[in-house]
């Protein structure tokens, strides 16, 4: 009895934790490498090199905040930021407004809901490049919308956003909304469908009108859906690049430049890596500014419950 229990004890010694279920750990190596090397490592690398004077090749010659000072005194960057702000604010408001309105209309138990939904959503399947090129053609001043309206009799009609620096961002906005509102509508519709039918019955019994029910009861109930939509739109706006390249390529002049394009131009075209790194770090900072309050609302709030 004593000998067997000793044998048992040896055989059943607590295994080293790292080697327990080794397959699960081996299979997770690609994930671990991606998380640590690319996401953490890559981001940290870029932030560190944004404090250097790297030009054609990255080198660790630290120059403090020089790149950032140069960045914020470059007209092109300032225009990029301003453009993104205009595009961002308009896109945010209009996407939420259109997305919610469309979803609410589709939620009124209408006929052909599936058809309308397909029509509103299909642009989301298309790339920004295709979107940009399609709208570039429609907004073409010589053959597109402007010319068609002029021929219909309004000779003085002018709508040429792609060649007018003052309104070029709105030309992009029309295309961006066309591509992206369907997604938000879908999310909003899912949110509306998640609301208990009894809420509507209760509102009806209480004699509250449809619009008032939406504004006072439904929208406040959909707060988490709105927050998700907000984060989606915001993270999409910051990444805005393909659409601009395809539709205007930053033109006319530099009137429709955006930060993502600035970064790529300096990194891969102008061979001024330090500027690219500094600009991309600024993009990272802006994402953090957006995401931290969201994460706090989303996850910090949950813990309190």
């Amino acid at each position: 009895m004593t000998t067997t229990s000793q044998d048992d004890a040896r055989a059943a010694r607590r295994p080293i934790r790292l080697f327990r279920n080794p397959m699960a750990k081996i299979a997770s190596i690609p994930m671990i490498l991606t998380a640590l090397v690319v996401f953490v490592g890559g981001t940290a690398w870029t932030v560190v090199y944004s404090f250097t004077d790297s030009r054609l090749l990255p080198r660790l010659n630290f120059v403090g905040l020089d790149q950032y000072e140069r960045l914020w005194s470059t007209r092109r960057w300032l225009i990029s930021i301003e453009n993104l702000a205009i595009y961002g604010i308009c896109s945010l408001i209009l996407t939420l407004l259109i997305g919610f309105t469309l979803a609410a209309m589709l939620d009124r138990k209408i006929r052909g809901e599936a058809v309308f939904r397909s029509i509103f959503l299909y642009p989301f399947a298309l790339s920004f490049v295709v979107t940009g090129l399609a709208w570039q053609w429609i907004l073409n001043p010589d053959f597109g919308l402007q010319e068609v309206v002029r021929r219909m009799g309004w000779e003085g009609f002018t709508f040429d956003p792609l060649n007018n620096p003052d309104i070029v961002m709105f030309g992009l906005l029309i295309a961006g909304l066309w591509q992206g509102t369907g997604l938000i509508m879908c999310i909003m519709l899912a949110g509306l469908r998640g609301i208990d039918e009894d809420i509507w019955k209760a509102a009806k019994v209480d004699g509250i009108g449809t619009v008032k029910t939406y504004v006072r009861i439904i929208i406040p109930m959909m707060r988490p859906v709105f927050i998700t939509a907000l984060v989606l739109i915001a993270s999409g706006i910051i990444k805005l690049y393909d659409l601009v390249v395809a539709q205007t390529n930053g033109g006319p002049g530099i009137a429709s430049e955006v930060p993502a394009k600035y970064v790529i131009n300096y990194m891969f075209r102008a061979q001024n890596l330090g500027q690219g790194f500094a600009a991309s770090t600024m993009m990272l900072v802006s994402v953090i500014i957006i995401l931290v309050p969201w994460a706090y609302l989303e996850f910090g709030g949950k813990k309190r419950d």
């Binding site: 490592g41 690398w45 910051i238 993502a260 790529i264 990194m267 991309s280 994402v287």
Partner: peptide, 8 residues
């Protein structure tokens, strides 16, 4: 943003 990871 992808831009911060592009060069690494």
């Amino acid at each position: 943003p992808y831009q911060t990871m592009l060069y690494p």
